[in-house]
């Protein structure tokens, strides 16, 4: 038992950084906003959520931390986002869940829980320009890339290169709010995240597979590339039997060595654990680290994108015994 514990301690990731992003819940956006999407589109009325894939990454980190705690191998968990601001409720949620530190990479803009008035969540350049595919029959859209997620909203990109559409875990400032932020430039987003991650030097970097507006899934790859680390795509990840394992979408389990980047889907953990109100209230004194250094930011070169929304019509009809045929014939439903 002691030997096993010793092995675990030796091989256990001591410092985990998780890149996450707060995004608008796009399924709640008004159809007219999707149809007329631009850098000035006001989505301030749409609730914000932690990207679902990033939630999985956050939860996996905490499970590893739990596992470390059980064998006396403390794990330090850092949640890292790039945004113009992070609402207090999100940082407190993360602290209450068990994160030791929450970091917000920003460009030096004034930060607060809220800046007042209606805000513009948009894109810096050319956000509404034409490109990609046209509206098709059915729910949502078909675009250059069939995108996942449950929001029924797909996004097309034109001028496609690997970095044309951002997304992936970590950050994309357009979705986080603020007009003068990165748009959909995955490479630059990843570059800046990587700069900070190099300073943190975690044993393990966890990211959600894809995120936010564009869901390209490119950011995790770029982060790994910039840091010179191996990347593993996984449905989930865990320490098990003394080794760090990632499980792929097809069920294969791969033993990996730290440091590395692991990009996870949302199959292994349904979401971030919930915290009680008492636990959240207990985080009142904890605040996120705001990293305003301008070095993390530079002008972004946003690709041209096109957004659209397609709403499925719903019909309601009375089903009466013997009356259905008449009803259908009448067309009055």
């Amino acid at each position: 038992m002691d030997d096993k514990g010793g092995t675990l301690k030796k091989r256990f990731a001591r410092k985990i950084a998780v890149c996450f992003k707060v995004v608008p819940d796009f399924v709640q956006a008004l159809a007219e906003d999707w149809e007329n999407f631009s850098e000035n589109t006001d989505l301030a009325y749409v609730k914000r959520v932690i990207n679902c894939f990033d939630e999985s990454a956050l939860e996996i980190a905490l499970r590893i931390k739990d596992g470390g705690g059980k064998i006396g191998a403390p794990v330090f968990c850092i949640a890292l986002t790039a945004a113009d601001a992070l609402k207090t409720s999100f940082s407190r949620t993360l602290f209450a869940a068990g994160f030791d530190r929450v970091e917000v990479l920003t460009d030096g803009a004034e930060l607060s829980g809220y800046t007042g008035g209606l805000r513009t969540y948009g894109f810096r350049d050319n956000a509404a320009s034409a490109g990609g595919a046209d509206l098709q029959e059915g729910d949502g859209l078909r675009t250059d890339t069939e995108l996942s997620g449950n929001c029924g909203v797909n996004i097309a990109a034109s001028g496609v290169g690997d970095n044309a559409v951002s997304g992936g875990a970590g950050s994309d400032f357009a979705a986080n709010g603020g007009a003068s932020r990165f748009g959909f430039d995955s490479m630059r987003t990843a570059e800046k995240l990587a700069e900070r991650l190099r300073e943190i030097a975690p044993d393990l970097i966890l990211t959600g597979r894809q995120a936010g507006c564009a869901d390209s899934g490119a950011v995790p790859f770029y982060i790994a590339e910039f840091l010179g680390l191996p990347l593993f795509e996984a449905s989930t990840a865990a320490f098990s039997g003394g080794v760090f394992l990632v499980e792929t979408d097809v069920g294969a389990k791969i033993e990996v060595s730290a440091p590395c980047v692991v990009s996870v889907g949302n199959g292994g953990a349904e979401g971030l654990r919930i915290s009680t109100l008492k636990e959240v209230l207990a985080t009142a004194e904890k605040t996120p680290e705001i990293l305003r250094a301008a070095k993390y930011f530079a002008a972004a070169n946003n690709p041209k994108i096109k957004f659209a929304y397609f709403k499925k019509e719903k019909k309601c009809a009375v089903m009466t015994v013997g009356g259905l045929t008449d009803l259908l014939k009448s067309g009055d439903f």
Partner: peptide
């Protein structure tokens, strides 16, 4: 307001 509407209002 924050939970359901994204807090389009001051904190």
């Amino acid at each position: 307001t924050e939970r359901d509407f994204g807090a389009p209002a001051p904190q």
